[in-house]
């Protein structure tokens, strides 16, 4: 890395560069060197190696490995576990991201228009973000418990049959989604609240004077467009975080029952660190990275189309 920077740098002879400028450039290189070395060692190099591993049959514990071309990738698309895992991740994301975004937006607007208890509500909804997810997942496991859990006890009071929340393959993904939503609403809420308070009050007054009679009209004219950048940001983050679901699955279901809660990161973890099939897991990781890249790319595209607000 250091070589790369040195090569890209002052070798080109330009007489215009004064001694002071050269000194400044040298100081800058020295200051950024540790960060760049670590960036290379812990991020760029491993990513390159993962891509490389993806083309091998490397397994930890065996001495050598062979390059197998795209074999891992072709195997991936016939691997029922992996396909199941991709599908489950998609379903989980499709539930958690939209609900946690709209719920947060709605709650933020309610809190913003209410003058009492603002900080209490903000705290209450934000608390799950600051809590250890593994620990709170354990609490949810108790709440969801089919026989002794309070949720089913409550349902029983109303004469409703309680499902076997985390224990049945039919309901496990939805139960995990509930925990996911519970955990992420507060984060989005805080971002939306910040976005709402940043809207100038004169814009609402202008909307009144311009004849926006109902709250709905003012929301369409001012609130929604002004929240645009925040919404885009919250959407990207919510989707990425949902794709990265792991903690609750590892703690509560281990992908079960019957692979009904296999998700992407959990499958990667199983293949790579439990079965130690590094090559195969690397190919999965590349797919995971590709998903992130596509999501980020989409965000940039939408952002580019948006106005440059002054």
């Amino acid at each position: 890395m250091a070589d790369a920077i040195a090569a890209a740098l002052p070798v080109v002879r330009k007489p215009a560069r004064s001694a002071a400028e050269r000194q400044e450039a040298r100081a800058a290189l020295v200051l950024s060197l540790p960060a760049m070395v670590l960036l290379f060692v812990f991020i760029l190099l491993p990513v390159a190696v993962v891509i490389l591993f993806g083309f091998t049959d490397y397994e930890l514990g065996y001495a050598g490995f062979r390059f197998v071309g795209f074999d891992n990738y072709t195997e991936l698309f016939t691997d029922r576990t992996f396909r199941r895992s991709l599908w489950n991740t998609t379903v989980y994301t499709a539930i958690v991201a939209p609900i946690s975004i709209f719920m947060a937006l709605g709650l933020a607007m309610l809190i913003e228009s209410e003058n009492i208890g603002r900080s209490f509500f903000r705290t209450a909804y934000f608390l799950p973000v600051a809590s250890l997810l593994v620990a709170m997942a354990t609490v949810w496991q108790y709440l969801f418990h089919p026989t002794i859990g309070p949720i089913n006890a409550l349902l029983a009071l109303g004469g409703l049959p309680g499902p076997n929340w985390l224990g049945a393959s039919m309901s496990v993904l939805y139960s995990l989604s509930i925990i996911g939503i519970w955990q992420s609403v507060g984060f989005n809420l805080v971002l939306f609240l910040a976005g709402l308070t940043a809207i100038p009050r004169e814009l609402y007054q202008a909307a009144h004077v311009d004849g926006a009679r109902s709250a709905f009209d003012r929301c369409r004219l001012v609130t929604w467009p002004m929240l645009g950048p925040t919404t885009l940001f919250v959407t990207t983050i919510s989707i990425i975080n949902a794709v990265k679901v792991f903690e609750t699955v590892k703690t509560l279901t281990e992908g079960g029952p019957n692979k009904a809660s296999e998700v992407l990161l959990f499958t990667i973890y199983q293949e790579g660190f439990v079965y130690l099939k590094v090559g195969y897991a690397s190919a999965m990781t590349v797919v995971f990275l590709a998903i992130l890249v596509v999501l980020m790319f989409l965000q940039y595209r939408v952002q580019d189309k948006q106005v440059h607000y002054s």
């Binding site: 812990f42 491993p46 990513v47 993962v50 591993f53 792991f246 790579g272 590094v278 897991a281 990275l289």
Partner: peptide, 8 residues
């Protein structure tokens, strides 16, 4: 999650 395998 993406760099974990080589680092491990």
């Amino acid at each position: 999650h993406a760099t974990a395998l080589p680092l491990y």
